[in-house]
Design a protein around this nucleic acid. Sequence first.
DNA 1: CTGAAAGCGCTTACAG
DNA 2: CTGAAAGCGCTTACAG
Lengths: 348, 348
Amino acid sequence: MTAKRSTSFDVAELAGVSRTTVSFVLNNVPGMSISEATRKKVLEAARQLNYHPNESGRRLSSGKSKMIGLVLLQSAEQVFNDAFLLQVLMGVETIASQYGFHVLLRHIKNTDHDEYSQLINENHVDGLIFSGPLQEDPNLLNLHQRGFPILLMGQMPDTGIPFVDADVERGAETAVAHLIEQGHTDIGLITNAQFRYSTAQQRKNGYCRALGKANIPVYEPFIQEGDYTPGSGYQAMNVLLDSPARPSAVFVASDVVAIGAIQAIKQRGLRIPQDIAIIGFDDIPMAAYLDPPLSTVRLPAYGIGWAAGEHSIRQIRGEEFKSQGVLLDTELIVRQSTRNGLKTQSQS
Amino acid sequence: MTAKRSTSFDVAELAGVSRTTVSFVLNNVPGMSISEATRKKVLEAARQLNYHPNESGRRLSSGKSKMIGLVLLQSAEQVFNDAFLLQVLMGVETIASQYGFHVLLRHIKNTDHDEYSQLINENHVDGLIFSGPLQEDPNLLNLHQRGFPILLMGQMPDTGIPFVDADVERGAETAVAHLIEQGHTDIGLITNAQFRYSTAQQRKNGYCRALGKANIPVYEPFIQEGDYTPGSGYQAMNVLLDSPARPSAVFVASDVVAIGAIQAIKQRGLRIPQDIAIIGFDDIPMAAYLDPPLSTVRLPAYGIGWAAGEHSIRQIRGEEFKSQGVLLDTELIVRQSTRNGLKTQSQS
DNA sequence: CTGAAAGCGCTTACAG
DNA sequence: CTGAAAGCGCTTACAG
């Protein structure tokens, strides 16, 4: 790129001071009282030379990379269907850049290979944030135990690894409580994912808790498994519709899965919410435009990213945490798919 | 982190060779014929010490960062509604990591500040990829003219800046041609964005070209502006529905905008596609689950990311391009919203 | 209030 | 086939 870029040496020379002073001035090193005159000279020289400290040099001498690695563990397919991930990313990026950190994005297809340790060992990043389905992963645990700053979006119970998550269980409880308020007692559940994922388990817990508080017994046949896809919602809903005791309302723990469920209901000529009320989970951007507009529970995606970024940086700085994890609140969004008595949109 | 991490010096010592040799072996420097015995010794020592070359040192001495900056220029709101961005990101990340590059993600809210030059000047990245609405941006042009490797996803006409994009104009043409094939001649257009964005202009060009080839004159009142949102589609469609000469089919150049348009149509009790056929653009994941399932044009999001990553790396390596830009093909996806004669889903 | 000097961990001509 | 040495551009004790 054209002329050689200027270094702190050039600045020092032009300003007639030492590189030490240049560094002190430009980094605003506290405690170093530099005379106003010198400071001015340095600043002016830097401006004049269009000086930008070379980050590589800085990194090498400081030992810090000022870089957070954001590792996506979900499959390509999951990523593509994850409307929130982008918001999460933006949340992380925004807070990181405020703290002068950069975000390194990494999608990992194959957990075996332990690619994240690489990022650390090579001093690429100062800390790591993980997003995705968190299974038993010895590498992760190992990193944590070696004292490396890692943070989960989501949770790995009993590992002690710090996390940031939405309070999904409470969100699910709120959703089901809303159905109960509307007068429903026969309430089905279609999960967002297989039960081996804690994220599905949490939603079920919330479902059960809401029923419990209302003294409604849990009826196992009303509980069906989804797997992130509309197709799975379609199937699961058909099972519920075919069962002898049909629920009058269903909590589908993922809006995307709910889309399939809605299709199944419509195909039978049933009306939502009159015949079956549906509440989803996530509040994907499209939820408001489904037919009928879908009641759901909004996840604070951006907030999760933000909080994750902030906590990761705190970890990196060695700050102590009072608690192991952070749970962010969800928000109940009531639309036409559960609001009995309200007119749904006119149909063609 | 526990014990001090080992350096190339440690490896050299343990292997009984010089650091030079260690570097040669570990980097597989071509042309340096190292004896098999020495190579073995070095490799073994490295393994034994769990040696990972410190990237910071490497960067400083080599002057390369092995990092591509991916700069998002769209507003936060746009990002949130952009179902493709994530796929694009994954495309970039995938190809980058194959070439040993890392991806630095950066969301820029304020183009004035020229934050990208910073990324370059500080030697943070070797090259930059830009995504988002590309307006006149002197900073961008300046970077290009200074010879820095930058690449656009999308196009800035007449700047000579290399780009990767979908062949949107042809995609739009295909969509409208499809409507014409279905027997329509009164065909409306609702754009994805304001006309000052080249992306909207391109879609209109395709629309006009398809009409032209079929000898259908362009009727200006049939052309309405959208602005990325369903709300704008709702409004624009209402204008079309209120106009004396109502189109029998509308090309809505964004699925998201089409969602609003569909709502407007349904509210009037009109049927899709019997009364009005609709074709969208983008093929968002939800398009297949709209009611009726939406015909649309699929953008190769992942492919764009991939191609952008690859070209950026080539630029960085100083390879010459035969052509200034790459245009990737779109794909016509026909569903029920345009297929006359096919039954739409049963309605509640 | 400021500077000379060492050091961060690599790579890479240059010698031999 | 391999090594001694310089250099990348910073930061940061240590002196004064």
